[in-house]
Simulated scan of single mutants.
Amino acid sequence: MQSITLKVEGMSCNHCVNAVEGAVKKLGATGKVDLNAGLVTVEYDESKVTVDAIKAAIEDQGYDVVS
């Protein structure tokens, strides 16, 4: 398993947390949002999902991945 922490802008409430964590989960990864810091830590199997796919799934929810 690999782990990456992404800076995500636009998250402000529990709905945002659920949207981001749910989008990551659909990819077969596990995401944990730190709302106060604006960070999402994702654990994933690099043989099944790419970082680009994770970023795209978060952005599809309406948030901006900045790193």
Rank of each mutant, 00 (worst) to 15 (best):
M11L: 09
C13F: 11
V20H: 05
Q2E: 15
T5G: 01
G38H: 06
I4A: 12
L6V: 08
K55Q: 12
V65N: 02
I58K: 07
T50C: 04
Q61G: 01
D34L: 04
D52S: 13
V8S: 03
G62K: 13
K48E: 13
S67D: 14
S12M: 11
K55E: 09
V20M: 03
S12K: 15
S3T: 15
K26R: 15
V49L: 07
C16T: 08
A56W: 01
A56Y: 01
N14V: 03
V65P: 00
E59W: 05
N18E: 14
V42K: 12
E46V: 09
S3G: 11
D64I: 11
V51S: 02
S67Y: 03
A19K: 15
V51R: 08
V42I: 11
T5C: 00
K26G: 11
D45M: 06
N14E: 14
A57I: 04
V17P: 02
I54D: 00
A57K: 06
A19D: 09
S47A: 14
A23N: 09
S47W: 00
D52W: 02
N18Q: 14
A19Y: 04
E9I: 02
S12C: 11
V24N: 05
G10L: 07
I58G: 00
C13K: 13
M1S: 14
D60N: 14
A56I: 02
E46C: 05
M1D: 05
L6W: 10
S12P: 00
E21M: 05
A53R: 13
V49I: 11
T30K: 14
D64E: 12
K7V: 12
S3C: 08
L27F: 12
K26Y: 00
M1C: 03
I54K: 07
G62E: 02
D60Q: 14
V40R: 03
Y44I: 10
A29E: 01
C13Q: 10
G22Y: 06
E9F: 02
K32G: 01
N14F: 04
A37T: 05
A53M: 12
K55V: 14
T41Y: 04
K32Y: 02
S47I: 01
M1P: 06
T41E: 12
Q61E: 15
I54V: 12
G62H: 11
T5A: 09
V17A: 03
K48T: 10
L35E: 02
T50F: 06
E43T: 14
G62D: 01
G38P: 07
V8F: 03
G31L: 10
D64H: 11
N18M: 14
V17E: 05
E43S: 13
I4Y: 07
I58D: 02
C16G: 05
V20C: 03
N36D: 15
V24D: 03
V8Y: 03
K48N: 13
L27Y: 11
D34K: 09
T50I: 03
C13E: 08
D64Y: 01
A23L: 05
N36A: 15
H15W: 08
V24T: 08
E9M: 08
G31H: 08
K25Y: 09
M11G: 03
G10S: 10
